[in-house]
């Protein structure tokens, strides 16, 4: 698949995005490490029109000192989607992007058809110290269940990394965000939280919190993946996410046939 790169003006920012595929709208918000594509985007693009934003302040965009909270960033990203002429959409947030996606759905529930929270960082261990950092090798061991099976990570530009880290610390907020959790209890949007069974950044045991808090929430474990679960098992990730986006509650009903021979 060929991604089309473009920019959109919204909320005073010039926001980069990548677009691919056709079908129902699927907006993606990335995690603290910035926009990193995986094969999952290609697979989803076979069924969806996928727009992956690079949130202002990440990547090579200018430093963002205006977005000081997740709700503020969520409002900015909702404006960016509007600026593209898109009214309603499915929303997929990864890690920190899942927290912003949750706020966006809380702020504009009528616009979000369904929500996918991949390795979400909206609820973190009470002793979590902030986003992980380290050499590419250390990060690979942290982010992947099987780093040996994945292409090597590259070290980010130190200046960009420092700038991003400041922004991430602001957007992340407290490890347990009481204001968010109160609002999650009222969010009727169908939501699927997907956790890697081997995630050491956001422990999969936190998945149960989303199931408890979200009235229409579902919890799924993606076996043998860590924090970058969509990159490690893209087919498995897309199979369950795509099914959930298409069928919401009914995604729990098996449709594949088990007939071996007629």
């Amino acid at each position: 698949m060929t991604f089309r790169e473009d920019f959109v003006e919204a909320d005073g920012f010039r926001i980069r995005y990548l677009e691919v595929g056709s079908g129902p709208m699927l907006i993606h918000l990335h995690g603290a490490g910035g926009l990193r594509l995986s094969r999952a985007y290609d697979l989803l693009a076979e069924r969806y029109r996928v727009i992956a934003f690079e949130m202002p302040g990440f990547g090579n965009s200018p430093e963002n000192t205006r977005s000081t909270t997740s709700p503020e960033m969520a409002a900015t990203m909702a404006a960016a989607v509007s600026a593209l002429g898109i009214e309603t959409f499915n929303l997929w947030g990864t890690s920190l992007g899942a927290k912003i996606a949750l706020w966006l759905a809380i702020q504009a529930p009528e616009r979000v058809t369904a929500l996918v929270l991949a390795a979400p960082a909206a609820i973190r261990p009470t002793d979590a110290k902030g986003p992980p950092s380290g050499s590419p090798e250390q990060m690979a061991r942290l982010l992947y269940a099987h780093p040996d099976r994945m292409p090597p990570l590259t070290a980010p530009d130190p200046a960009v990394a420092a700038q991003t880290r400041r922004l991430v610390m602001q957007l992340a907020g407290p490890n347990r965000d009481a204001a968010l959790e109160v609002r999650m209890r009222e969010l009727e949007t169908p939501a699927l939280a997907v956790f890697g069974t081997h995630d050491r950044v956001i422990p999969p045991e936190l998945g149960r919190c989303y199931k408890q808090l979200l009235p229409n929430g579902y919890l799924a474990f993606l076996y043998d993946t860590a924090h970058r679960l969509d990159a490690e098992r893209p087919e498995a990730f897309v199979e369950i996410v795509g099914d959930f986006l298409a069928r919401h509650d009914a995604f729990v009903i098996r449709r594949t046939e088990s007939l071996i021979l007629p």
Binding site: T197, K211, L219, Y223, D224, I240, F251, V252
Partner: peptide, 28 residues
């Protein structure tokens, strides 16, 4: 390996969940 992981997860989880494995797949 996957079956053992799933058994332990089924024993541990207090909430319903889906399992997206390689050899085992359960939505509930």
């Amino acid at each position: 390996d996957e079956g053992m992981e799933l058994i332990l997860r089924a024993w541990a989880e207090p909430q319903p969940f889906s399992w997206q494995g390689r050899y085992f797949q359960y939505r509930t």
